[in-house]
Design a protein around this nucleic acid. Structure first.
Lengths: 200, 200
DNA sequence: ATAAAATGCGAGCGATCGCTCGTGTTGCAA
DNA sequence: TTGCAACACGAGCGATCGCTCGCATTTTAT
């Protein structure tokens, strides 16, 4: 129907970034459902109408945040390619857990948005995208280290590993800053204890 | 002010149980926020007015479910007292994980309600009650096995253990029934790998 | 300079939802 | 049987929220 191409001006790009920042903050504070679009607009210092100038609906804002999240994950992980997969387990865990924790600490709103299992149907798509990306990375590393492992077992291990991150990272993010290093250590203990017998 | 004592009839008690069942089902399907009180009443086959005859507001229904959950946890764990704490680790894990999984599989709505970290303020109280109860059990077992462990370390270990359950149980609950035993095995691997070096 | 497009505003519409209230029905006690 | 309390109904109130729309202002293109 309508490609609806809009030639953005520099001001528009800035506004969109401001709106994303505001949305991330409000989502982090009250969660997706309780966050009102008017509150997001107010936090960004604009009117509701301006928000809808750039984002067609509330879900589109979440989608934009999901994209930003994926981008940060990618750049944080850098080149997490098969060559890294053959490092000693301890170091591999450091390389995976470190960036994962850093990205989540820097974006306290994301887990509140995408870490839940009972989310509204409208958010399922961006959520699946984030999960699929992380799952793919873990699965690839497992495949490189244990090519003999049946795909079903590997998938199950990757799924469990994701859930371990999903369970422990919110705890780390919400902890006092001073307590965080100890909790990150616990996360690594968990990963080492679980993955050691499998890919150690 | 008003003690507001109401002499319940047998029919009323039955209605309250039906409403709790209906609420558990609706909460499990769409989550707490998206669950409407009218939908809960309809699911129970009664009018909205009847629901509010027994529960003052939406939160009171969640509170009743939290109470029921605690009750089931207590009876499922049976006598999980310090004497059990000195069993071999594998068996101890079986005794803790088994009932925990069973209760959650039998009540698929509870984790959807009380397992989230970003819940509305009104639900914080019942959530804390459930968490405190589980935390207390785990902490007591750890204290019995490792009396020398500093309280801070013990608390951190108990907290992490809770998060491991919190991360893996939703996966187990939502899995196909045939896949569940394998996932429960993974849960036990995780617990063994993490707790082994600490209280093995 | 002028038109067109992009940006910005904010009152308020339409829909939803938690909850109420007036009224009618059923159960129990005396 | 009679009277009161518990139970039940369901239309709809009041508040909230996502989103719209008419209009004003700023930027860009010509």
């Amino acid at each position: 129907m309508e490609p609806k191409v809009v030639r953005r001006q520099a001001r528009g790009e800035r506004r969109m970034a401001e709106l994303q920042d505001a949305a991330a903050a409000v989502f982090a504070e009250v969660g997706y459902e309780a966050a009102t679009t008017n509150a997001i607009a107010a936090r960004a210092g604009v009117s509701p109408g301006t928000l809808y100038q750039f984002y067609g609906n509330k879900e589109a804002i979440a989608q934009a945040l999901a994209d930003r999240y994926l981008e940060q994950l990618r750049s944080a992980h850098g080149a997490l390619t098969p060559e890294l997969a053959h490092l000693p387990l301890d170091e591999l865990i450091d390389r995976m857990a470190g960036p994962m924790v850093a990205v989540n600490v820097a974006n306290p709103g994301f887990k509140a948005l995408f870490g839940r299992s009972d989310m509204p149907e409208q958010l399922a798509a961006p959520t699946r995208a984030v999960h699929a990306a992380v799952f793919g990375r873990i699965d690839a590393v497992l495949a490189a280290r244990r090519p003999d492992l049946p795909a079903a077992d590997r998938a199950r291990t990757a799924q469990v590993t994701m859930r371990l991150f999903g369970g422990l990272i919110p705890m780390i993010v919400s902890a006092e800053e001073g307590e965080r290093p100890a909790l990150v250590q616990e996360l690594k203990k968990v990963l080492r204890g679980y993955l050691g017998p499998i890919v150690g």
